[in-house]
C-alpha cells in the first residue's frame, strides 16, 4: 500500500508558492536594507559613484543642529498627537458603543478622513489655518500664524493629524470594546457599580490589549510623519526648520539635495530610534495591559 497521501508535506509546492513573495522581499527589502546601510558609510556623487567615508555621515548628522531639531520636532509631534489622539478616539469609541440611533452614520463620518489622501486633507486645513484669510482667525478674531509661527506649526499639524486618525483608531477600539462579554456589565450593575466604575474596572482593563495595539500603531505612524508637514509647511516656509520631521529631513537630503549617503544615515538613525521607542513600549506594557480573559 502506498503511504497515506498527505497534503502538508511538500517542499516543491511550498517553494513554488512562496517564491514570488520571497524573491520580491529579497529584491525590494533585504537588498535595499543592506544597501542603505552600506550607503550610509559612503559619499555618493550625483552620478551614482560611491566613495567609502566610514562614519563621516553619522558624525555629520549627529553634529548638525538641523538633525537634532528634526528629532525634537518628531518627538514633540508624537507627544502631542499620540496621547491626545488615542484618548479622544477612546471617547469616540465609547460614545459609539452606547445604545443610540444612527451609529452607522456617525461611525462613517468619523472614519471619512481615512479614505481621503493626506495631501488633500493638508490642503484644506492649510486654508482653514491661513493666517490672513483663514476661517479660524477671522471667526475668532485671532492673529495667529498657525503655519508660519515656528512655535505654532507643530501643534497645528498635530491637530490635523489627530483629526485624520481619530475615526480609524476609534473603529479599532470600538471592535475591542464590543468583544467584551455583556455578562461582566450585568454582574457589575447587579452589584451596584456606577457607569464610571464599570468603565474603570471592566472596559478599561478588557480593552487594554487593543488600546496597546492602537497606541503602538499611532506612535509608529507619528514617528514617520512626513506628508502633512510637507504639504502644510513646505519648502520656503520660514518655520520649516522648526517643523520638519526626520523623514522630511531624509527626503530633502536624499532627493532634493541629492546626498544619498547623508539621507541613508538619517533614515537609519530614524529607524533605530523607532525601534528603541517601540521596544520601550513593549517592556512598559506589562505594567498596564491585561491579557487575561
Amino acid at each position: 500500500m502506498k503511504k497515506t497521501k498527505k497534503l502538508g508535506q511538500d517542499n516543491l509546492w511550498g517553494y513554488l508558492l512562496i517564491a514570488p513573495t520571497v524573491i520580491g522581499l529579497f529584491i525590494l527589502n533585504v537588498y535595499p536594507f543592506v544597501d542603505t546601510i552600506i550607503l550610509s558609510f559612503c559619499k555618493s556623487g550625483v552620478f551614482g559613484g560611491r566613495e567609502f567615508v566610514g562614519l563621516e555621515n553619522y558624525a555629520e548628522i549627529f553634529g548638525s543642529q538641523e538633525f537634532w531639531q528634526a528629532l525634537w520636532n518628531t518627538v514633540y509631534f508624537c507627544i502631542l498627537t499620540v496621547p491626545v489622539g488615542v484618548f479622544l478616539a477612546l471617547i469616540v469609541a465609547i460614545l459609539l458603543n452606547a445604545k443610540i440611533r444612527g451609529k452607522v452614520v456617525f461611525r462613517a463620518i468619523f472614519f471619512l478622513p481615512m479614505v481621503v489622501a493626506p495631501a488633500a486633507v493638508a490642503m484644506v486645513w492649510k486654508w482653514i489655518f491661513n493666517s490672513e484669510y483663514g476661517i479660524i482667525n477671522t471667526v475668532f478674531h485671532l492673529d495667529a500664524g498657525w503655519i508660519t509661527d515656528p512655535n505654532l506649526v507643530i501643534p497645528t499639524v498635530a491637530i490635523v493629524a489627530i483629526w485624520s486618525a481619530i475615526g480609524y483608531d476609534a473603529v479599532l477600539l470600538l471592535s475591542g470594546i464590543q468583544n467584551i462579554s455583556k455578562t461582566y456589565y450585568e454582574a457589575a450593575s447587579l452589584d451596584g457599580c456606577t457607569k464610571l466604575q464599570q468603565f474603570r474596572y471592566i472596559t478599561l482593563p478588557m480593552v487594554s490589549p487593543t488600546l496597546f495595539v492602537v497606541l503602538i500603531m499611532r506612535l509608529m505612524a507619528s514617528l514617520k510623519v512626513y506628508d502633512l508637514i510637507y504639504m502644510m509647511v513646505g519648502e520656503g516656509n520660514p518655520a520649516l526648520s522648526k517643523s520638519q520631521s526626520l523623514i522630511y529631513l531624509f527626503y530633502r537630503e536624499s532627493f532634493i539635495k541629492g546626498d544619498k549617503g547623508m539621507g541613508s544615515a538619517i533614515v537609519i538613525a530614524t529607524v533605530v530610534l523607532i525601534g528603541i521607542i517601540t521596544a520601550i513600549q513593549f517592556v512598559g506594557q506589562k505594567k498596564w495591559v491585561n491579557y487575561e480573559v
Binding site: 535595499p32 542603505t36 539621507g263 533614515v267 530614524t270
Partner: peptide, 19 residues
C-alpha cells in the same frame, strides 16, 4: 523574513528602490 520585514519602517528601503 516576512515578520521582520513587516516590522521595519518602509522608508529605509526607498533610496535603493529608487536607484
Amino acid at each position: 523574513l516576512v515578520i521582520v520585514q513587516q516590522m521595519i519602517p518602509g522608508q529605509i528601503f526607498i533610496i535603493p528602490q529608487y536607484e
